[in-house]
Nucleic acid binder design. Structure first.
Ligand SMILES: [Mn+2]
Ligand SMILES: [Mn+2]
Ligand SMILES: [Zn+2]
Ligand SMILES: [Zn+2]
Lengths: 128, 128
DNA sequence: ATTAAAATGAAACCCATTTCTATTGTGCTT
DNA sequence: AAGCACAATAGAAATGGGTTTCATTTTAAT
C-alpha cells in the first residue's frame, strides 16, 4: 500500500508536533498553513491507513476524542497523562507484553491487544 | 448521599446482569419490564452517582460506548475482552497498583488512575 | 399544609466520527 | 495526445453516544 498525498501531509504534521493530537488538531494545523489542505474526511482516512500500517498509533484517553502520534514502525507505547497540564510522559516499554504468556496460561486467553493509559500529576505540576 | 429511586432501579438491573452494560442497555432493560421506568437521562445521572460512590465502575473499551458494572465498593478491576463472543473475563486483581510506586520514583509522577483493558480470544472461542 | 430542595423526563444540543455522493487526480491503454 | 478505469478526495449530511437545559413532579423539612 502506497502513501497518498493526504497521508504524507498528515505524517508531516505528526512529525512536527510530537504530542498526542486529535484528527481535528491535525486538520486544523494543515489548514492553517495551507487553505486548500485535505479535508477532515481525508485526515480520518489517512490516519486509518497509517495506523494499520503501524506508523501511527491511536490513543484513547477516555474523553471521546481519539489522539494520534508517530511511533517506531510496528511498535506502541503507553503514557502517563498529567491531569493538570495535559502533557504526557511517553513510556519506553509496554508493561503488558510480559504478562501475555501468564494470561494465556492462567485463563486460556489469547491476547491480541490492549489499552493502557495512566493518569495523574506530573513532576512539573507537582513541584508547583 | 442517598440512593434515589432511579439509582436503586439501576442497581437492580446491574445486579441481575453481571455483564458489562451500556447506559442504553440498562435503560432498555428497565423499560422492558416497566413502561414507566426512569428515562435515559436519569440512568446517566444515576450511573454518575453510583460511580462516584464507588459502587459501580465505568469501563472504557475504546468503542465510544461506556459500559458499567457493579464492583465491590471502592474497588476496581480490569478485563480480558473476547473479540469474538464479546464476553469478558473479570480479573481478580489490578495489575497496575503495584507499579505506581515505581512510576513515582522513576518519573516523579503521582498516579491517580488508569485505564487498562486487554483484548483477544477467550478460551471457549479458541476451542471452536 | 407550605415551601424549598432534589429528582425527573423530553427535547434540544454537542461533537467526534462515519457515510454518501459528486468531483478530481492518476496511471495506463490505445 | 485522447480516452478510460479506478483510486483518492471534498464536502455535506447523517449517525450516535453523551450532555445540557428547563419546565414539571417528587420528596423532605418546617
Ligand atoms: Mn506517545
Ligand atoms: Mn468486570
Ligand atoms: Zn502495550
Ligand atoms: Zn487497575
Amino acid at each position: 500500500m502506497r502513501l497518498t498525498k493526504g497521508c504524507k501531509k498528515v505524517l508531516d504534521v505528526l512529525e512536527s508536533i510530537h504530542e498526542l493530537s486529535s484528527a481535528q488538531d491535525i486538520h486544523g494545523r494543515m489548514r492553517n498553513e495551507d487553505d486548500k489542505a485535505p479535508g477532515l474526511t481525508t485526515v480520518y482516512r489517512s490516519l486509518e491507513s497509517l495506523v494499520s500500517e503501524g506508523l501511527v498509533q491511536a490513543v484513547d484517553l477516555g474523553d471521546g476524542e481519539r489522539r494520534y502520534e508517530l511511533v517506531k514502525p510496528g511498535e506502541h507505547h503507553h503514557h502517563l497523562v498529567c491531569e493538570s497540564c495535559r502533557q504526557s510522559v511517553h513510556l519506553d516499554q509496554c508493561l503488558i507484553a510480559e504478562l501475555e504468556e501468564g494470561i494465556r496460561h492462567k485463563y486460556g486467553f489469547q491476547v491480541k491487544g490492549h489499552i493502557l493509559e495512566i493518569f495523574g500529576i506530573c513532576k512539573v505540576c507537582t513541584a508547583k
